[in-house]
Amino acid sequence: MVAVTVAVIRFGGSNCDRDAVRALEHLGVDAEIAWHEDGLPADPSGVVIPGGFSYGDYLRAGAMAARSPVMTEVREAAAEGTPVLGVCNGAQIGSESGLTPGAFTTNRSARFQCEQVHCRVERADTPFTAAFDEGDVVRLPIAHGEGRFEAEDDRYERLVAEDRVLFRYCDADGTVTDAANPNGSKGGVAGVLGERETVAVLMPHPERAALPDLHGGTDGRGLLRAFA
């Protein structure tokens, strides 16, 4: 029998891999770390590309990891419908590898920012947002220096037309404003979908908002339930 397990990929420099496993296990989801050179385990029930600084973010954030052999396997798994979630550096890797549209680049502040943000759920019909309703406001932490979402105007219009924006930064009431946009992301985009709604990336960290004993909120659980 093949164990049904979520694979959390560890690149050199990943640093949220253990956190993702801890959060998933807290929800009763079986998860294990997969060292990138060993490839994906057989038939994973899902794939998480965790945060961190893969390859030290030398070149561009996520650029080197995106070109590693394991990402070919991830793209194949994604194409077959396996849920794939990229978080923070994992979002940068996801966009660099073509899993999702757009790019994440240096924050408007040009500084690293670790703080709580609000995000509005733009699509509730995906496995990552099934726990929410469209328009719900979720509270999640961010921790990144390069999280500003960017896409050329025509590509941005296309991804909006295709309804691939999953989250936008907003204020506590759910209004998308410039003041509530922590990093200058285009359209306040915090997370986007790939070609299938089973593939998503976002800059905020759901795994840091899953454990009630940390008093940082538990809105992240809703996203991670995609793997349950």
Partner: peptide, 14 residues
Amino acid sequence: YRQYDHEVGTRTAL
């Protein structure tokens, strides 16, 4: 401290 990742490791309760 906003420039420091103070939550990585999911141990920070305060």
